[in-house]
Design a binder for these strands. Structure first.
Lengths: 192, 192
DNA sequence: ATTTTATATTGACCGTGGTCATTTTTTGAT
DNA sequence: ATCAAAAAATGACCACGGTCAATATAAAAT
């Protein structure tokens, strides 16, 4: 069985990725053009699509990288125990997620896998987010009538809702943090 | 004083809309091509964009129409009182929302307004969904420690989460209805 | 070294959404 | 009826993501 991972291949891929990062550093994610990336990388357009299924696939990789860095940071600190602490710990994650409308939309679109056995890097990020929160909740003083797995899924749902409403003119009175705190208070520590 | 809404205008717009509906009836939403619509409507391409900001704007109108029809239906029946009844009443709405991946993505993308004072038909649908659920909750026996407004926002968040996870290979063990029921039981009637 | 085969790269080309200067039609004033 | 100004329709054109047959390069076999 031949396993020829040519050196050229990883080099070209690396060139494309770093070129894309550079392009994004200048104009943000939304403004990225494939033509610009391949020009900066010094390869032909077709080469790009030999390395990435489509433009979104590249975006997934780059955005998931950044998101994983945010999750690293969140995980490195001492586990939060209260709702405000949880929100504070997740702040860098949410901050990046809503840094650009384009980024948020893409995150949501790829938060679940497109097809079975085709789970992309962003879907893994969401899975990781879920697991990190679940671990926090297990050692925090939250309601115990439902499993912490379910609680963590709810935190994710509410965080997405709160981020979405940031973009919604009909609900722009409250800030993201206030809204999320209201949600999580009601979800994690309901007053019997 | 100038208010010349030419008859021609509404006629052309109507032609475009019904042509689009016809096209969708055949191939679904995702496969719709603007060229096909204008051909079927017997107008030039430029005319399309004189009537709709872009392709998404047309889609918003058509999808919001369908969604409003579903909401009409949900509202016409006797108000549900329990979690399973609420889920059952919303079933046609959720059914349509997830009828096509393309539709679901577009719904989410336009669920909030793109910009202040630029609230599209889909954003209004979400607002309506929220209000309908809130009214149901007010006369149902749910937790009373938080306002029903908040409860309704939560229902929306959980419904979206449950729909999203339908598309996610990492969480495809549970069905949509089961998952949503689990969510709403924990959200609406927490065991002190 | 030479040939063969697998893999990577290329760039002309296509599909489709969206633009805009030009032309056609409608409307209101005379 | 005639004309001027506003509104609507037109279609050639552009931008940009994505394809693919042809070509170039690397690795394996002789």
């Amino acid at each position: 069985m031949r396993k020829p991972i040519q050196k050229r291949t990883i080099k070209t891929r690396a060139k494309l990725l770093s070129a894309a990062e550079e392009v994004i550093r200048h104009g943000g994610y939304e403004a990225l053009r494939v033509e610009e990336v391949v020009k900066a990388a010094g390869v032909a357009k077709g080469t790009f699509f030999a390395h990435f299924r489509d433009k979104d696939a590249l975006m997934e990789i780059l955005i998931a990288d950044k998101l994983n860095a945010c999750l690293d940071q969140a995980q490195s600190e001492t586990p939060p125990k209260t709702v405000p602490e949880i929100i504070a710990s997740l702040e860098p994650v949410h901050e990046f997620m809503t840094s650009e409308r384009y980024v948020f939309d893409l995150l949501i679109r790829y938060s679940g896998a497109t097809a079975i056995a085709d789970i992309g890097p962003i879907a893994y990020c969401f899975e990781r987010y879920f697991r990190v929160v679940m671990m926090w909740l297990e050692t925090a003083e939250m309601r115990k009538d439902v499993p912490s797995e379910l609680l963590a899924e709810g935190v994710q749902a509410f965080a997405i809702q709160a981020m979405s409403l940031q973009y919604c003119a009909l609900h722009s009175a409250t800030t993201f943090t206030d809204r999320l705190e209201t949600y999580l208070d009601a979800w994690l520590t309901p007053a019997g």
